[in-house]
């Protein structure tokens, strides 16, 4: 984490990214590597297999940044990423988890 306080951090505009990916070892590494090499912090990550387990869904919570459009395009280029959808910070997927992070 950076030097922002938790309150300040929460005041930043947030985006929730929803990724459909192939489910195998290494996919997470491909995805988060794109962020880390740009020193672009991922605030929240949630992953579970979907259906038969052949694919997974990754939810990423990231701060809005002028680089976000480029980030999404880079994520879309990954072989194991099948689809990327963008949601606003109001998306409830991370909200419901907050009780585990007090």
């Amino acid at each position: 984490m950076n030097s922002l306080t938790r309150t300040e951090n929460q005041a930043l505009a947030r985006t929730v990214l929803e990724l459909d990916v192939n489910n195998h070892a290494g996919v997470m590494s491909h995805v988060v590597g794109l962020f880390s090499r740009r020193a672009y912090n991922v605030e929240g990550i949630l992953v579970m297999p979907v259906g038969s387990g052949a694919t997974s869904r990754i939810w990423l919570l990231v701060n809005e940044d002028e680089r976000l459009d480029q980030m999404v395009k880079q994520v879309e280029k990954l072989e194991d990423v099948l689809a990327v959808r963008r949601h606003g910070a109001e998306h409830e997927v991370f909200v419901r988890l907050e009780e585990f992070f007090v």
């Binding site: 290494g26 590494s29 491909h30 590597g33 072989e79």
Partner: peptide
């Protein structure tokens, strides 16, 4: 090798 080559390949396989 897999981890090392992630950021410098278009794609990689183990």
């Amino acid at each position: 090798t897999y981890g090392l080559s992630i950021p410098i390949t278009k794609h990689n396989f183990l």
